[in-house]
């Protein structure tokens, strides 16, 4: 076999250099305004200040089976009675800002990802995983996401977005439809 080795040894940071819960790979997509245009065109809308009460938080959590992390909503009511909502979903390895469009019946019409951040740290807790890096030194090939634009090799599930939609649908049901 014709084996060409690009680099024989790729070494890693010394075990002692690890910090728990490193946050990497953040990417910015649309601005709120771009997302608003995509989802609602030029339809006029007005921001509505909404803070969920404790009872509302409880009711939304119970109905959607999703934790409500933030009681302050970032919502705009459109002329046609629909909603433009900017919200965040938090998963085990990702943290995503999204903009949603809900119509006046509380049905989700679309959504756009505004920013996407991947978080790690779970590996650090695993002693076996950590042990394999003992005694290796640093390499210039080892780079954090921040510096790298194109990344190959990731498969995260998108189920937290589904959870987020579910939570917001119940937020509409419990709160927004009455406003």
């Amino acid at each position: 076999m014709d084996r060409r080795s690009f680099t024989k040894m790729v070494s890693l940071l010394a075990a002692g250099a690890y910090l728990p819960a490193v946050q990497v790979h953040a990417k910015t997509y649309l601005t709120i305004d771009q997302a608003r245009k995509l989802l609602w065109g030029n339809e006029p809308m007005e921001q509505v200040p909404v803070t969920l009460s404790k009872d509302q938080v409880k009711a939304i959590k119970k109905a959607s089976k999703v934790r409500v992390r933030n009681d302050k909503l970032q919502v705009w009511k459109t002329e046609s009675g629909g909603w433009f909502i900017v919200d965040q979903v938090i998963g085990k390895h990702e943290n995503i800002d999204l903009a949603f469009a809900y119509d006046k019946e509380g049905k989700v019409m679309g959504f756009e990802i505004l920013t996407y951040r991947e978080t790690y740290g779970y590996e650090v807790a695993n002693p076996k995983w950590k042990a394999q890096f003992n005694g290796r030194d640093h390499s210039e090939h080892l780079k954090l996401d921040k510096q790298i634009k194109n990344i190959s090799g990731a498969t995260l599930s998108c189920r937290h977005i589904t959870d987020g939609i579910n939570r917001l649908s119940h937020t509409w049901e419990q709160v927004l439809r009455h406003l």
Binding site: E118, K143, D145, N150, I151, G153, A154
Partner: peptide
């Protein structure tokens, strides 16, 4: 991770370490 770059000649890519997905 399935990537297409039209101007690939001028691009580099970070391939994730399988056991350490925040490193490339």
């Amino acid at each position: 991770g399935d990537l297409y770059l039209s101007n690939w000649q001028e691009e580099s890519v970070g391939v994730r370490y399988p056991d350490e997905p925040n490193k490339h």
